[in-house]
Design a protein around this nucleic acid. Sequence first.
RNA 1: GGCCCCAUCGUCUAGCCAGGCCUAGGACACCAGGUUUUCAUCCUGGCGACAGGGGUUCAAAUCCCCUUGGGGUCACCA
Length: 490
Amino acid sequence: MSDPIRLRFAPSPTGQLHVGGARTALFNWAYARRHGGTFILRIEDTDPERSTREYERAILEGLAWLGIQWDEGPDVGGPYAPYRQSERIDRHRKAAASLLAAGHAYRCFCTPERLDRLREEQAQRKEKPAYDGLCRKIDAAESAARGARGEPHVVRFRVPAGETAFVDHVRGKVVFDNKEVEDWVMVRTDGNPTYNFVVVCDDVDMRVTHVFRGEEHLVNTPKQVLLYQAMGQRVPEFGHLPLMLGTDHKKLSKRTGDTALQDYREKGFPAEAVLNFLCLQGWALDGKTEVFGVEELLAKFDIRDVNKAGAVFDIAKFLWLSGEYIRRDSLDRVADMCAPYVVRAGLMTEDDLSTRRDWYRSVVAGEKERIRTYAELPERIAYLFADDTALRYDEVAEKNARKHADRAATLRAYLEWLRPRLVKDADPHALGEAGRAWIAERGLKPPQLLQPLRCALTGQAGGPDVYEIMGWLGPERSLRRIELAIERLA
RNA sequence: GGCCCCAUCGUCUAGCCAGGCCUAGGACACCAGGUUUUCAUCCUGGCGACAGGGGUUCAAAUCCCCUUGGGGUCACCA
């Protein structure tokens, strides 16, 4: 009962790391850390057709990006290496042979054609499609002889009569009638073992004590429990995590949004925000605190507090949380994280970023509370880099400007006043003070100047302080944009 | 369809296991107001849920049953 606690995350490198998988990894890791256990990363690459090293690398990178560290894995090794299933095939073959010898498994010589026919008949009779156990009856000697002769066959697990029960830490006690579990294939015709078989072999060999995975695996569990029992091994503790759902309330799929962790990384969500949000899908720190980090998670996480019901992935809340992290983060960090997006958008080069570092920092400071992801910055500041003559006026911005009948006259008067005062490195604060006085002297309401002015300078309806914007643009371009606006808004 | 799982505001959830402290708390979204030159931030307020029906009990969101609804899964894929 006092075996050291060991958990694993076992992704299949057949695609990008799914956000649901990332959450599964996160909860496994958190439980291991919380309880002083070991967290293992194992790659389930038993499907050679679809598995690639590229995906494996992407998965490792994604987990590392989130801040999840594994104690044992394909890259770091460990006492139960190798950590790639394809490299453990000898061990799987041995386990299959001993199960066969012990009578817990049997060779099935049924052809695919017979199986297809069987399924068709069962479908017609509205029965559940399942293997009928024909080859169970073949006696051991004959089976061995036919096997030795090289007759094609699979190896099936001999499911005993009775029922299989296990305790699930999320759901409580779960019971399956063994009649519902068919004699499933352990080893394929080509000699390769199947998932349900290797997963148990490896979990046994790696001394895994807790298996937390997505709810879609719940129906596999009786097969696996039965296998543990046949192997004479201790059954681990299970916990089936609620599914992450799309807005259609079905298993999260590309149909209703991005499913890959990488998508969110590329979209400029801070890693800490992603981790935080993933925690919120099916778990809560205390029911009140929404924004929390890894330390709070590791201090409080318990599998028993995980929700049973599926969680609909709410991108609006995710964006809010992401913005929350950006607002709380330091200016330098946000500036650095946004930089690649600014470069990619063609706004600035790497060189620009270093030679005009102060200017760039100032611009980021102006937008920091408005962006929700790093990727949102370029579109917000693109006006600063636009050709003065080709500045696009946003519909709302132009409408706001045109609301004021005397807009052109006001801009013209302001322009004349501004011309001698807007010099290089003019202080935006002083300029703002003077601007307010100018507005007051003429008996104007602030928006009468500021809305046309903002439209002239940015073409946008909202944004940072206009005097600060003139500082970023510089005297020449600011004045030019106002001149152009006098014509365009006339 | 069989089997399995699930069910608190539109969404994420607290409360449920150890029934009374719940005229059900928080957050996102939405709406209204305040702050601001605008947008955003920030602040205040509003809207909004125990799926339905039976039990058990002095007392049920909390325990039991049924119904309904939703989901998962039924491969020589993982």
